[in-house]
Design a protein around this nucleic acid. Sequence first.
RNA 1: GGGCGUGUAGCCUAGUCUGGAUAGGGCACCGGGUUCCUAACCCGGCGGUCGGGGGUUCAAAUCCCCCCACGCCCGCCA
Length: 576
Amino acid sequence: MDTLAASLRKRGLAWEPPAVRALVDEQGSEYADLAIPLHKVSALLRQPAASLASELVVELGGLSGLLPPVAAGPYLNLSADPQWLVRVTLDQIAERKGAYGHRSALSEAVCVEHTSANPTGPFHIGRVRNGIIGDTLARVLRAAGHPVTTQYYVDDVGRQAAMITWIWSKPATEWPPEIRATVPETPEAGEKPDLRLGRPYPAVSAYLKEHAEAREEVALLTKRLERGEGGPGHRQFAEEILGGMTESLARIGIRFDEFVWESGFVRDGSVEKVVERLRRAPHAVQEENGAWAIDTSGYGLPKETARVIVTRADGTTLYPTRDVAYHLSKFARFPRVIDVLGQDHQLHARTLDALLAEMGESRRPEFVIYQDITVPEGGRMSTRKGSAVYLDALLDEAVERARKEVLARREDLAVGEVEEIATKVACSAVRYHILRVASEKTVGFRWEDALSFEGRSGPFLQYAYSRASSILRKAERTTGPYPFDPELLQHPQELALVRSLSKLPSTVAYVARTSHVHTLAGYAHGLAERFNRFYQFVPVLKAGQEREGRLALVAASRQVLANCFELLGIDPLERM
RNA sequence: GGGCGUGUAGCCUAGUCUGGAUAGGGCACCGGGUUCCUAACCCGGCGGUCGGGGGUUCAAAUCCCCCCACGCCCGCCA
């Protein structure tokens, strides 16, 4: 880069290094690792790009680690010296192993809040997208060196929590018949609590729309819950349902460092403090009925929603108010705060920003917004409409199919191993299927796609890993070191694979910076693809003098795939 | 009506921030590949008005403007 700048300077262009760097097409291409279009420079220098390219080629020759540059029309192409790249990349992977691609520790602690679904029933996969994105992002941020804490914010004081408490506090004999009809007379043995306790929820929701007196009861209960007067069992139902929900998430590797209960901010008085501060805020207004609101029209929010209610007429608070208290607690502990939110919370995100600004807070959370998973008829999944696909059902079906696939291919495995493989294949398929798409894009749900085990899928990645493991096992060289001569790795498939291996660190850094977790999914697929091609065309066990080098390459590939799996939440399989 | 997001082959998707060489994958379809490290794989073929129209530029899927379609939000719910 410096040499290039010097060459340009000689021609009368005093560009700073950033300007020179901006010329470079860093994506590279099949022509080069680094392609530099010279059109701009050529216009400035009034010299045809092609002749400029040929001149620069001469001046840039002989740089270490680089092949001699090539002039290709108006492009100046630079490529890393393959043998140099092979040695550096494989050495680094062998040395850093599971930490290859990771960066040195940073002090900036990050809080990633994700999922935070209200405990009202089992997860459908539309909701799980939040957890998959959030969990993966947390893993990548850790690899990028941040101390990360994941939090699940549990609503146990709002109206939805009150609805659950309201119905289950009554003996079933006192339930309205239409609600009772949604629950079987005799509960099935071993049924998960989220499924069992969540069952009447849609019916309760519908019932309340029609019955004012019941609505009153729930409103009263909401008030009591918020005041901490819910009684000894007030959190019992939420806890039980949440237990079932998180059990489902654990099946695909999603776990949380902390559960933060909303009622805690009510009990410790921090919500009250927020209310007091907001009443003194510049744009606080009191409505005729006694409710307090903030006029947020100065914050660019849509006109119709420019009034954010802080407290109801009866003095109780609403979700945005309590969420402010929650975020203040996050700011107190973490320099960086990330919230993963569904697009339906977009407005809430902006409201939260506005309220924080009103209070004179300078800090803001970063929002990672993702779109819905939609059903074929269009629109989002809905429990009420019966269009939801539940995570447990999807996983069960995936395991079932995976089991059939394993049995069709392998007759030599013990039952236990078949089950393990089926489970891990199924979970990787479901997780990868969600992860592969950019979060700002809608995912249309189709069973045949979600359960696909080939092509761009989790099992495709696992298969590449299994093949690598298999080679090392047969060579009886599952552990290193693998001394080798980089000169003997010359095959185009070998070099393409090494080039891919060398890109994990920059990919991790990119994802940590942008939160675009799907990029990592794409990288892992590209790597597996290159490994499969190498496997197809380049013999390892039967190789002659190249054998050691190829074993080193296989071991490195296996390691980098494993590192990707750790970040993506996919389980490696030694055989499948 | 307003705000946010999306629109790339029959279907799904990368690339859009930061404009550069023939727009990269997958599914489906057609044709090949296993005496050889697992064929959940690989190779070839078919298939593209990058939603439409203007503009900027030597160069636009990418930047600017207008329009269209779809999704979500616009509650003293969360």
